[in-house]
Design a binder for these strands. Structure first.
Length: 342
DNA sequence: TGGATGGCGTCGTGCCTGAA
DNA sequence: TTCAGGCACGACGCCATCCA
């Protein structure tokens, strides 16, 4: 059995025309009579010809493949970003080459090398952690544009699309204040996290703006281990019983805070139904899950525009590939809306 | 060993051919 | 003479092969 791939030459021979005529018929750009075009199409159908994308890439010097480096696909924020990237890529007939870098520089470099070697048209990175001038210069050498689609990014040498963490924290804090909360704590995240720093900035500025007392010990760093968060929250509420609301850095913290508050006998209430006299705690979290997994927990969530970050990053990279040489931009996307799950 | 060459598949451009 | 239809050729990047 002959398994040789059908090429444009085979189609041309079968149709009794030249390779160029087949090419013109395929693109619809040339001066081809309907009769000739029909003849070519019949041969294509009969032989089962499929355009060789690799050869077309070779000819056009465009692969139509966009590289995506995500730190961790199991993190809901990044899987949503990837989904947004993929969603917009589909509308532009682009393919996404997804790689996962973890938290290691070596792995990030390996992903970058793979994408460069593969000949992608552009690269979207889900974290600005490992970006530097050297990498940008290297990609510029290969004429591969790069866009950062991350929660936060300190590096300013490239286009950055990210959620407005400060505004999200401001909305969360204001929502609590407007519902009668005056003793608000912030829980979660690691001290080196830029996302956390931005959110804490929004939280602090809003507290000060409303003339409420600010206490640095009410900003608590946690890891993502449930038992650890539960213990921290229960200890904290023991120590500061007047705290009526907690802003939670992520969904894991919200869940831990919920269980921690229950542990010391507090009642968890939705923000709107808060009553100071019932030892109730209101919880507001930044939702990076976007699912209904925690629907039973009375936590108000601020939704993160992760998918929009992905879509906008893809739009930007396509602009860059098309030759947009304007200065790098930092685009912050507003958080979605307050979503009561209680 | 290293440089030159050809082949892979596709497609745009320039040019030739033939009909009206 | 004009114009539609079709053809030959070159270029793209990489790799294998050949030859000095």
């Amino acid at each position: 059995m002959n398994l040789r791939k059908i090429t444009i030459t085979d189609v041309a021979k079968h149709a009794g025309v030249s390779v160029t005529t087949v090419s013109l018929a395929l693109s619809g750009k040339g001066r081809i009579s309907q009769k000739t075009a029909d003849k070519v199409n019949e041969s294509i159908e009969e032989l089962g010809y499929v355009r060789n994308q690799q050869a077309a890439s070779l000819r056009d010097n465009i692969s139509n493949v966009i590289g995506l480096i995500i730190p961790d696909l199991t993190e809901p924020f990044y899987s949503e970003v990837a989904s947004g990237v993929s969603q917009y890529a589909k509308t532009q007939n682009k393919i996404v080459f997804l790689t996962q870098s973890g938290n290691s520089r070596e792995e990030f470099d390996r992903c970058l090398d793979s994408l460069i070697n593969y000949g992608v048209d552009g690269i979207i990175v889900g974290s600005g952690k490992f970006l530097n001038d050297e990498i940008v210069a290297r990609l510029a050498h290969y004429q591969i544009p790069i866009v950062c689609a991350a929660r936060a990014c300190e590096f300013a040498g490239i286009d950055v699309i990210r959620p407005d963490n400060t505004l999200a924290a401001k909305i969360a804090t204001e929502h609590l204040i407007n519902n009668g909360h005056h003793q608000i704590a912030y829980f979660g995240g690691a001290s080196h996290s830029l996302t956390r720093a931005e959110r804490i900035g929004g939280y602090c500025s809003t507290i000060i703006q409303y003339g409420l007392p600010f206490r640095s010990e009410w900003i608590v760093e946690t890891n993502n281990k449930q038992q650890h968060i539960i213990q921290q929250v229960s200890d904290f509420l023991h120590q500061y019983p007047k705290v009526s609301a907690i802003i939670c850095h992520n969904t894991a913290t919200a869940l831990g805070a919920y269980l921690g508050a229950l542990k010391i006998g507090s009642t968890i209430t939705s923000v709107d139904n808060y009553s100071y006299f019932n030892q109730e705690i209101a919880l507001v979290g930044f939702d990076d899950i976007g699912s209904e997994a925690l629907y039973d927990i009375p936590v108000t969530f601020i939704t993160q525009p992760a998918r929009e970050v992905g879509i906008n990053a893809m739009m930007k990279i396509i602009q860059r590939i098309s030759g947009d040489n304007s200065l790098p931009q930092s685009v912050t996307l507003s958080p979605g809306f307050l979503r009561d799950k209680g």
